[in-house]
Nucleic acid binder design. Structure first.
Lengths: 231, 231
DNA sequence: TAACTTCTGTTAGAAGTTCTAACACAAGTT
DNA sequence: AACTTGTGTTAGAACTTCTAACAGAAGTTA
C-alpha cells in the first residue's frame, strides 16, 4: 500500500524541480536546463534529484508533456468562453488565446514546436493533448471547407480523423483546420524566435491578418486541391 | 605580410571542422556539437581547435551564417533558372527549391528558423543574406498586392523596404512577400521537426496547397487590412 | 646562415556537466 | 522490535568547454 503523505511530498518535490527547470529554460534555453543546478537551488545535492527523474531527458520530456496539456487547456477554455458567439468572433478569440499563450512563454512554445529535443519521443497522452488543441480549432473555425479534396490527401485526412475518433468530419473541414494551424504557427514561430525583431514589423498585425483570412475563408481551400500547375 | 599558403591551410582546417560539426548537428542536434569530438575526428587534441574558433558559440554562429548564405544562393539560383516563365511557375519553382533545401537538411533549416541558439546574435551579413532570400521571393510572386494596407503596418513595411534599399516596392507587395514566407515556413517548420509524422499526412501536399494559394492570391491580401472584427 | 617572430600543436588543469555506486539514515509496515 | 522502502549523502567515472604554459615548426628578416 502506498503512503499518501510520501506520495504528496514526492509530487511537490517533482513540481518544484519542474518549476525551477522552467525558469532555467526561459533564461538559458533548453541547453541551460541543468539537473545539478536545479538541485542546488532546491538545497540538495545533484544526485538526489535522480530519485525523482530518471535523468535530464526524462525531466525535459515532462516539461513538454505539461506544456502540451497546458496549451490544450487554454484552447479549450477559450472555446468554452466564446460559446454563443458567431464563428468569426470565436475564431478571433481562439487566435488571440493561442498567441497570448505563445508569446507570454516563448521558451515553452519552442519546446513544443521549435527544434525537437535530441532523443525525444512524444508519449501517447501528449499526442492526445495536441489533438485536443486541434479539436478546439475545428470547433470554432467557419465551415468553409466543403469542396472536394485531392484524393491522396483526402484519404490521409480521413484516416487521421478516424484515428482520433472524429471520423464524421469531412476532409475539407479537417484540411481547413490543419492549414489554419500551420499558418498561425508560421507567424508565431517566427515571432517567438525573434525573427521579426530586426525587421521592425509588428508580428501581431501579421498574425491578425492571418486570422482574418481564415475567417474569410479565402485562404485557398478551393485552390488547395490544385497541386500541380495549370495545363 | 600574410602568408598565402598558411592562410589557405587555415581556411581548409576551418572548413573541415565545420563539415564535421554539420555532421554532428545532423546526428545529435545542436547540443551534440562538441568541439572536443570534432577535434578528435580531425586527429588533433581538443584545445588545438581554439586556434581556429573562439569557442563553441563562434563555431555555431559560423554554421548559421553559412546556412543563410547557402539558402539565399539556392533561392537566387531558382529565380535565375525560371527566368522567362510566367509568375505562377516561377513561384512553384522557388517554392519547391525552398522546400527541397529545407527537407534535405532539416537540422540546418532548424538552425536558422528553429529554437534560437542561447547567446546568438545575427551578424549583419547574415541579415543581408536573409534579405536576399526574401528579395528572391518578391521577384517571382504574382503582384497581387495592390490594395491599401492598414496604416501602422504600411509604415513599418515602408521603413523596412527603405532600410534594405527597396523603397520603391509598394507596401502591399511587401506584405504579400512576408506573408508568403510565414505560410511556407509554417508548413516546413512542422515538417522538418517531424510533427506530421504521427498524423500520417503528407506535408508535401499541404505545402503545395499553400504555394497554390499564394499564386491564386486568394490568401487574404484583401482581408489582411481588416485587423479587428466587423463593427 | 642565424636570430627573431608567428603559428600551430601539445599537455595540465580548473570548473562544469550527467549519471552510477555505495552507503547512511529516516519513515512506514509488519 | 525487525524489516522494507524512500530519500538523502559522498565518491568517482566519463564527459564537456576553455585557459595557461610550453614545444617546435614555419616564415621573415638581418
Amino acid at each position: 500500500m502506498v503512503n499518501a503523505r510520501r506520495e504528496r511530498y514526492r509530487e511537490e518535490t517533482r513540481d518544484e524541480a519542474k518549476r525551477i527547470a522552467l525558469a532555467q529554460l526561459a533564461e538559458h534555453g533548453p541547453e541551460g536546463v541543468s539537473v545539478n543546478a536545479i538541485a542546488k537551488r532546491m538545497g540538495v545535492t545533484g544526485p538526489a534529484l535522480y530519485r525523482y527523474f530518471k535523468g535530464r531527458d526524462d525531466l525535459l520530456t515532462e516539461l513538454v508533456r505539461d506544456a502540451w496539456h497546458d496549451l490544450a487547456d487554454a484552447a479549450e477554455a477559450s472555446v468554452a468562453a466564446s460559446e454563443g458567439l458567431e464563428s468569426a468572433d470565436r475564431t478571433r478569440a481562439l487566435g488571440e488565446a493561442f498567441r497570448t499563450w505563445a508569446i507570454t512563454q516563448p521558451h515553452r512554445y519552442l519546446l513544443l514546436l521549435g527544434t525537437p529535443l535530441p532523443g525525444y519521443h512524444a508519449p501517447t497522452d501528449t499526442i492526445a493533448a495536441a489533438h485536443r488543441t486541434m479539436s478546439a480549432l475545428l470547433r470554432v473555425l467557419p465551415p468553409n471547407g466543403d469542396g472536394p479534396v485531392e484524393s491522396t490527401l483526402d484519404g490521409q485526412l480521413r484516416a487521421w480523423a478516424r484515428s482520433r475518433g472524429e471520423g464524421d468530419l469531412p476532409p475539407a473541414v479537417l484540411l481547413t483546420g490543419v492549414r489554419a494551424f500551420t499558418r498561425l504557427h508560421g507567424v508565431l514561430s517566427l515571432e517567438v524566435s525573434g525573427q521579426f525583431g530586426p525587421m521592425g514589423i509588428d508580428p501581431a498585425l501579421l498574425y491578425r491578418a492571418e486570422v482574418e483570412s481564415l475567417i474569410l475563408g479565402d485562404s485557398g481551400t478551393r485552390g488547395s486541391t490544385r497541386l500541380s500547375g495549370p495545363g
